[in-house]
Design a protein around this nucleic acid. Structure first.
Length: 591
RNA sequence: GGCCUCGUAGUUCAAUGGAUAGAAUAGAAGUUUCCUAAACUUUAGAUGCAAGUUCGAUUCUUGCCGAGGCUACCA
């Protein structure tokens, strides 16, 4: 269907005719800008099948293509590269076929089965920070990309709402809080709870210091500090269902959820399904027992249950403690199975979790495979690098974190300052302006994070603000706003474009770039990589700005050409919007 | 120690084994009586080191150097 597929067939045909050889594949790449041509066939790989001079072979294939393929205008050969010039008519026909398509590039008929994308997965003892922002943006964006590539997607979040960490906040609040609430303090709920998490740590450290001073060894002091023992006691009470502890737990978690909701709303992310660890932490034990009977696991003398993964190059891994209680792995096994029970059409899952857990997920996926679940083949750990500060790792307990809410607000303020300086917003109401600052500020932040390959770690320097110029979100948003400005002034009539008009070099480049959008979405989906979408959009926009600078759109006197340029601009705008939607970034009408 | 990631211009990022390694930013120099100058144009600057495989290596293999992570009957 696509030209490239068509040409592949023709090249194979040509080689068969010319050399009586069957070629398995043909390698194409876009022609480099320094050479004449649109598509390039790499001749070198063919030398394995055809003996001879690459230049000569390329020339002969080129001649064959010119004769037998309508769209091929001419060819030239440089070294082992056969550059093909495509007829302009082809590009204009292509444009006519897609120019009025809504959501061009998205696959609209979902394939069978669904993918669950898990992301965010916060602990409920502290507010979200920059690391969570990366997680949220990646997870949300990958979910949107998968949808656009034709998959049904469930977005899920597992909330780590139980455990020693939340007991620490609860205990500190009980001891030092004096009944403080989000209402009484005016603090966002998650920040308030986080404050007591820090307070716990402070008290804990003081107690350790005191114990050490009195002659207790440090490691012993760390285990025996009274406040830690109290927190552990509180966890035991929680597990036993102690009414008082449970109601405190509910109240404080409630505060945190209210806070999270605001942050999620500001970030523009959402979920189809929430899982709470307090509901799922007991899952998995039955599966382990069953697996034990089937010989997938084995029992050690002390009664603990393990799996031997040494044949797969990994270690032995515990899946059930000697007292029969679950470990993290047990829970994750159970939760995975629970999800498929909840959504039977799931045939794949994506876990958005930092790369520090690479090993854990490798083991988890392997165990699920060994247990024989068909969907275990299609599990993917969307592993991303940490966000580090110049001073090192962020640590909530020590307060060296870039808080998510602060950062978002900061970005908005920067956007506001720049906008005011440029002063282009006459006629906008204060409300419209505020909305715009948010769009731009978040656009800068989201693009900054998503354009980077997920697996690389990001070094974030809070001293140097995120850029608003160059390869940035606002740069792309600006281009979109400019296009909208043109469209407001033009009478865009969506008539068919004459395929005989002469294309400007920049127009042809733009058409080529637009044509790449559908395959870019597929590629991004296959690689779980929003960065590919970001880079694609940047290339498109850069090309458009160059076009905008060199070619007059509204000033064009030839009506046919003007009509084409207006419609081309509109389409570029639509692709920008579609691409940015996949990144969770909004586009403004003006800026 | 073992295992896993990552090392590309001063800085932040690109490059299905392909042509002269692309951008942005910071630096230098230009473009506004004309559709939004958050733009455009020009300029200088980089593959950690050493072997190997290949017609061809930033990409694959091995070793070394450097950064980070995992290696809990914690989650």
């Amino acid at each position: 269907m696509s030209l490239q597929n068509d040409l592949t067939q023709k090249v194979i045909e040509a080689v068969k005719q010319l050399y009586q050889v069957d070629l398995p594949t043909v390698e194409f790449q876009p022609t480099r800008k320094d050479f004449e041509g649109d598509l390039t066939v790499v001749v070198f790989p063919m030398l394995r099948y055809i003996k001879g001079n690459p230049v000569q072979i390329g020339t002969q294939i080129g001649e064959y293509l010119q004769e037998h393929v309508e769209e091929v205008a001419k060819c030239n050969v440089v070294q082992g590269f056969l550059n093909i010039v495509i007829e302009e008519r082809y590009y204009l026909n292509f444009f006519n076929s897609i120019k009025d398509e809504v959501d061009f590039g998205y696959v609209k008929t979902p394939s069978k089965g669904a993918t669950m994308v898990e992301y965010s997965s916060p602990n409920t003892n502290k507010p979200l920070h920059l690391g969570h922002i990366r997680n949220n943006l990646l997870g949300y964006s990958v979910a949107e990309i998968l949808k656009a590539s034709g998959k049904k997607v469930y977005k899920a979040q597992i909330i780590n709402d139980r455990g020693i960490h939340i007991c620490k906040s609860m205990l500190a609040w009980q001891k030092f809080g004096e009944g403080e609430t989000p209402e009484s303090s005016g603090m966002k709920g998650d920040h308030l709870v986080g404050k007591y998490y820090v307070a716990f740590d402070k008290a804990y450290k003081e107690q350790i210091a005191k114990l050490v001073e009195d002659g207790t060894p440090k490691d012993k002091a760390e285990k025996e500090a009274p406040i830690l023992l109290e927190a552990q006691e509180m966890l035991r009470k929680w597990e036993a269902g102690d009414a008082e502890v449970v109601s405190l737990w509910k109240m404080m978690n409630g505060w945190v959820y209210e806070g999270f909701d605001i942050t999620y709303k500001n970030l523009g992310v959402d979920f189809d399904k929430l899982y709470y660890e307090s509901d799922t932490y007991l899952l998995g034990r039955d599966v382990v027992k069953d697996g034990l009977e089937r010989g997938v696991f084995f029992k050690k003398e002390d009664g603990s249950v393990w799996i031997d993964l040494t044949e797969d190059g990994l270690d032995e891994k515990i899946v059930l403690r000697s007292d029969g209680t679950a470990v993290y792995m047990t829970q994750d096994i159970g939760t995975a199975i629970q999800r498929v029970t909840d959504f039977p059409d799931i045939n794949g899952m994506v876990y958005t979790v930092g790369n520090e857990q690479d090993y854990h997920f490798k083991v988890l996926f392997l165990i699920l495979k060994k247990l024989g679940y068909s969907w275990a083949e299609k599990l993917y750990h969307l592993s991303y690098g940490m966000v580090d500060l110049p001073s090192g790792k962020m640590k909530s307990r020590e307060g060296t974190v870039v808080d998510a809410d602060d950062l978002i607000q900061n970005m908005e303020e920067t956007a506001e300052a720049i906008s005011k300086e440029l002063g282009k917003l006459d006629g906008y109401s204060e409300e419209e302006k505020q909305k715009l600052y948010r769009t731009i500020g978040l656009g800068a932040l989201k693009y900054y994070i998503l354009k980077v390959d997920p697996k690389k770690r990001i070094l974030f320097n809070p001293e140097e603000s995120v850029d608003f110029q160059g390869n940035t979100g606002p740069f792309i948003q600006y281009t979109y706003a400019r296009i909208q400005s043109i469209l407001r002034k033009a009478d865009d009539v969506s008539t068919a474009i004459e395929v005989t008009i002469q294309l400007h070099e920049k127009e042809k480049e733009l058409l080529k770039q637009i044509q790449l959008f559908p395959e870019t979405i597929q590629l991004a989906a296959e690689n779980y990589s929003p960065a590919l979408i970001a880079n694609y959009t940047y290339d498109l926009v850069k090309e458009f700005n160059s076009f905008y600078q060199q070619v007059s759109i509204l000033g064009e006197t030839d009506g046919q050409k003007k009509n084409f340029r207006v419609q081309l601009s509109r389409k570029v705008g639509e692709v920008i919007q579609s691409a940015f939607r996949l990144l969770g970034i909004e586009v403004p009408e003006r800026m």
